[in-house]
Nucleic acid binder design. Structure first.
Lengths: 217, 217
DNA sequence: GTGCCGTTGGCAGCAAAGTGCCACGGGCTC
DNA sequence: GAGCCCGTGGCACTTTGCTGCCAACGGCAC
């Protein structure tokens, strides 16, 4: 079940945004879902009440300043937005528990014109399976607010090393020796890390670091 | 594209296990993929060389002792196995980058006989989208070995409360007061938590907790 | 050269965390 | 009842972590 053109896509999406019985879900690399997607999003928000929706994006969505405003506006309208560190495919997913719609996955050259192709599936097995995968991906993603408010910690090389030794569970003294710095300096680094992670205790800092997956990068 | 019966499923799966050009992927709730799935897995392992594969399961897969053996055997054959805390649907996913196969998603009564139905899709948009979702889910999942070796921490109600206050970043004294216990007991709880998390420092404990997503449950 | 600034490390003092010891009290079996 | 086990709380003490202060070092501009 494949079709082309944005008008038809909109015709399919519209009923999904209007039905209130089920939440619907969107997975995308960025806001370039289809030409005019941003305007459509704004319009539907202005017009309608709260649409129960979850949206999962790549960090790329935060690159553009105006896009961030759009996201904030979405969040204000009750949509739940999360960011995942895993690179998503360029395509877009719309799932509504019974139906799912996907855009053409590869948009190598954005200037390549012509109508996009969209794929629709209503096969229960496919939709349910995709939904379960989405749940798992969603669970591991970070809330937009946390992602933004945390001013995403910038871990430079030296704090990264501190983080690693800190993770190893040794005492400050041996950690400092390993890193070839004095105890005082090491503790300075730790204190700096606590500030950047906005943590009041070392436990909290570790928790944040773990939640943000700082140790896997 | 839907079909019934296990023989046909096997006929479709076989070429996937034999082609070496691409990794293939399996998402399932447990090993009850289809009748005789365990034996088939064993057979293919005995017979063939290493199959590059990733398998993502629910914790339910660890319930049965013999199933755990099967998993270990799989891991020994080079398959990468991870466990995700998010409940997966009962169905099973096979993805091979070009094709995906799903079992019937709802198996409410396992005794309900009759041939199962399977759904196959080779639509690039669907497969790529599902693959991206899988990547995200995979990324957040825990490796089987870690999951087993860590003797997965069992957080009872009271340690969970300790974990929460610990996460709030307050000092032990106020935390103990909040929980209505003495300082000594609170610290006992913290020490217990460190043991169950196999951590040498509070930071490490926080890190583990964060990595395992213990604060979102 | 002088002066400025940022980083480092030592010292000191304090706060917080970790732990061994013992005593108290509830629930249990016998 | 006595005896036992287990969880708790208090106390004392050690260790570790935290931070302010100051001196020393190196780079940089003038």
């Amino acid at each position: 079940m494949t079709f082309r053109g944005d008008l038809e896509l909109w015709a399919r999406l519209k009923p999904l945004t209007e039905s209130n019985d089920t939440e619907w879900v969107n997975v995308a690399h960025d806001l370039d879902t289809w030409p005019g997607a941003r305007d459509a999003a704004r319009l539907s928000m202005r017009r309608g009440g709260a649409v129960p929706a979850r949206k999962l994006y790549s960090p790329a969505v935060l690159a553009d300043e105006r896009d961030r405003d759009v996201l904030r506006e979405m969040a204000d309208h009750g949509m739940r937005i999360r960011i995942t560190a895993t690179p998503l495919s360029r395509g877009t997913f719309f799932i509504d528990r019974r139906t799912m719609i996907l855009t053409s996955p590869t948009t190598t050259s954005p200037a390549a014109q012509g109508p996009r192709t969209y794929t629709v599936s209503a096969t229960p097995a496919l939709v349910d399976g995709a939904y379960a995968l989405f749940e798992a991906a969603w669970e591991s993603a970070t809330d937009l607010a946390a992602y933004l408010s945390a001013e995403w910690p910038r871990i430079d090389a030296r704090t990264a090393r501190v983080l690693r030794t800190l993770s190893s569970g040794t005492t400050d003294e041996t950690a400092a020796r390993e890193l070839g710095m004095s105890l005082r300096t090491y503790r300075r680094r730790v204190a700096e890390l606590l500030v950047t992670l906005d943590a009041d205790s070392r436990f909290q800092a570790g928790l944040r670091a773990g939640e943000m997956g700082l140790t896997r990068g």
